[in-house]
């Protein structure tokens, strides 16, 4: 961008370096605008590489807005807003449950505009939570390992396959470590609600010494390298964006159902520039019209027709139900059951 000079801070803050108990950010970058009059501070779980095209496109439309983009994990994002009340103008996260908690507990500002009013009802909540992508959790398999083996299309078939080929898949199955990954926890809890097969699958994966990952990216890398044969509950949008430069992986959307995560934006109540945040929300909500941009970011926009075309897609419902698995006791119980199933020690 000619006009957008940006300075790059690639800095990893360690808690020991900053104030005690402060949240940990992974990356930070400032995008200076040509004639900057205001700054929009965004905290997000999306990697800079993924989000950067959106920032440039946004600044083309709003050339007077500096953007300060901070990447953090969903739990750190929660800590920054919920506990430390840091003055971020926009919080973008894939952890729908934590975002819902922000809105429910009064940490979000209400915003509405022409753009948000045309959104489908299931893509927003309380006019505080605005979903702007629909990203399914998929099964990613290594092509090499399934040359002779039929590719499972449902969870039951997957369980069947893993049970019958325990030697082949031992140590070669991957999924999220739900104890550390907010998104993994969201997918797992939704699975537990959606199907009885989830606990059987977890048991079976436990017996196969399943590898646990923090992030979708690493799972995809390991499947591509052949280190593992399949990864369960991988973020489909990440996998799709890796297809063109990663050989040997196949994305399998299971037929019984697909949990669809909506990446959401929230204006925190402590925001200094809620108007700028509103502009960004309008921009994100209008992503569907900008096909080039959604292609370059790999973020599939909210699209009712796409959902109807793929009947297995089940968008995770906004609402107080998402608070249930954030309950202290419920989380303890769930994690204990999950650890018992997955580790099998």
């Amino acid at each position: 961008m000619r006009f957008a000079r940006f300075t790059l801070f690639l800095s990893v803050f360690l808690s020991s370096l900053s104030m005690a108990n402060a949240f940990e950010s992974e990356q930070q970058r400032t995008y200076s605008a040509q004639n900057a009059q205001e700054t929009l501070r965004i905290i997000s779980t999306a990697d800079i590489d993924v989000f950067e095209p959106i920032i440039y496109a946004f600044q083309r439309q709003n050339p007077n807005v500096n953007i300060d983009y901070v990447v953090a994990s969903s739990t750190e994002l929660m800590r920054a807003i919920y506990e430390e009340n840091l003055p971020f103008d926009l919080a973008i996260s894939s952890a729908m449950d934590l975002q819902t908690k922000l809105a429910n507990d009064g940490f979000a500002r209400t915003y509405s505009s022409e753009a948000t009013d045309t959104m489908p009802g299931w893509a927003k909540w309380r006019n505080q939570l605005f979903g702007f992508t629909q990203e399914p959790a998929v099964l990613v398999i290594s092509e090499a390992d399934f040359l002779q083996t039929p590719i499972p299309t449902t969870r039951d078939e997957l369980i069947e396959l893993l049970r019958n080929n325990s030697e082949k898949f031992d140590g070669r199955v991957g999924t999220y470590d739900v104890r550390t990954s907010g998104l993994g926890y969201l997918f797992a809890t939704q699975d537990s609600r959606n199907t009885e097969a989830f606990w059987r699958l977890t048991e079976v994966m436990g017996r196969l010494n399943t590898r646990l990952y923090c992030c979708s990216g690493e799972m995809i890398t390991d499947v591509a390298s052949g280190k593992i044969a399949l990864a369960y509950n991988v973020l489909g949008s990440y996998a799709a964006s890796r297809l063109h430069n990663t050989a040997g992986i196949v994305i399998v959307p299971l037929d019984d159902y697909l949990s669809v995560m909506l990446r959401t934006a929230v204006i925190p109540s402590e925001a200094n520039n809620p108007e700028g945040a509103g502009l960004m929300i309008d921009f994100l909500v209008g992503l569907k019209a900008n096909t080039d941009l959604s292609a370059s970011t790999g973020l599939p926009p909210i699209d009712k027709e796409a959902l109807q075309a793929e009947s297995a897609m089940r968008p995770i419902q906004f609402g107080p139900g998402l608070l249930v698995f954030l309950d202290k006791m419920r989380r303890e119980t769930f994690l204990r059951s999950w650890v018992n199933s997955i580790t099998q020690d």
Binding site: N104, R126, R193, G319, P320, G321, L323, V324, M329, R330
Partner: peptide, 20 residues
């Protein structure tokens, strides 16, 4: 112990988008 039922909170979200 309590295993908070999903429906206990989700039912409150069915009629409105109120905080719970």
């Amino acid at each position: 112990r309590l295993e908070l039922p999903y429906s206990a909170l989700s039912m409150l979200g069915t009629i409105s988008e109120d905080q719970v």
